[in-house]
């Protein structure tokens, strides 16, 4: 009974996210258009530069990862922004829902959308640019995807915390966070080309290790001995920190009256 009640609460946020995506032409646009632009602009650039197959794969992996994370984190980031935009935040929080219902419910839709983007971009990369996406095998691919989605969850949770603290202004953060992370973790280049300080920061980002892990299947040497261990360990730590941060900002929002201010 309790499980079903909790599932219904999670399902509420999933269906709301799905509805907004379905009824908003721009949501479909951002799921198809930008990934298309991403894969073709990068793919055609590699063709112009006459790059070798492995290097093409290196760069396309970056493009696919970026778009997958961007889209996957959006639903989580927007989970509260939808309520802020519609000024209905207090109606959601007067109901007996927990943060976990919001995070899991919205995150599930982000996961599905991210998966669609990954399949779409991966398919186009295979078809048009001869990328061998199957080379890492099912296990390699699954672990890499899991890493991408967990990174998206960290970004989404951090944006949620910002929304609860700063309201609508945090919308920009939804994009800025992921771009900053993607710049540092060696999206289109090896981390070794970054300045020393930036290299240190890159080592603090789990995505750096997941990219490292996935690219080694394409012949690039591993920058760290156990990329998956580092990547997932950092991910777990950051997930706990970001969840704790959301809980703290929610508590602060109850004290400061933010929930009411954002509903006016």
């Amino acid at each position: 009974m309790k499980l079903r009640t909790n599932l219904n609460k999670i399902w509420a946020f999933s269906t709301r996210s799905a509805l907004v995506n379905r009824r908003n032409v721009f949501a479909i646009f951002e799921m198809v258009f930008w990934p298309l632009i991403g894969v073709f602009s990068v793919g055609l650039l590699t063709r112009f530069l006459s790059l070798e197959g492995e290097t093409v794969a290196f760069i396309l992996i970056g493009a696919v990862s970026m778009n997958t994370i961007q889209i996957a984190q959006l639903d989580l980031s927007y989970a509260l922004l939808y309520s802020v935009w519609s000024k209905s935040l207090k109606h959601e929080f007067i109901a007996p829902v927990r943060l976990s219902h919001i995070l899991v419910g919205s995150g599930l839709v982000g996961l599905v959308r991210g998966l669609v983007v990954f399949v779409l971009m991966g398919g186009l990369s295979v078809y048009f640019f001869d990328m061998d996406l199957g080379r890492p095998g099912l296990a390699g691919l699954s672990l890499f995807l899991l890493g991408l989605f967990l990174n998206a969850a960290i970004i989404g949770a951090l944006v949620l915390a910002l929304v609860l603290r700063f309201g609508q202004r945090a919308e920009v953060a939804a994009w800025a966070f992921s771009y900053l992370m993607l710049l540092l973790c060696g999206l289109y280049y090896p981390v070794s080309v970054l300045p020393r300080g930036a290299q240190f920061l890159a080592q603090l980002i789990p995505l750096t290790y997941f990219l490292d892990y996935f690219r080694h299947f394409y012949g690039f040497p591993l920058a760290s001995m156990h990329p998956l261990l580092y990547g997932f360990s950092q991910t777990v730590v950051y997930l706990f920190i970001s969840y704790g941060l959301v809980c703290l900002t929610l508590k602060s929002a109850y004290r400061r009256g933010t929930l009411l201010r954002l509903s006016d």
């Binding site: 269906t15 709301r16 509805l19 519609s86 959601e92």
Partner: peptide, 17 residues
């Protein structure tokens, strides 16, 4: 309430909460 949800959607959403 959320602008793109119908009357039924809204009630179903809050019911699930």
């Amino acid at each position: 309430f959320l602008w793109c949800m119908t009357v039924t959607d809204s009630l179903r959403f809050y019911g699930r909460l």
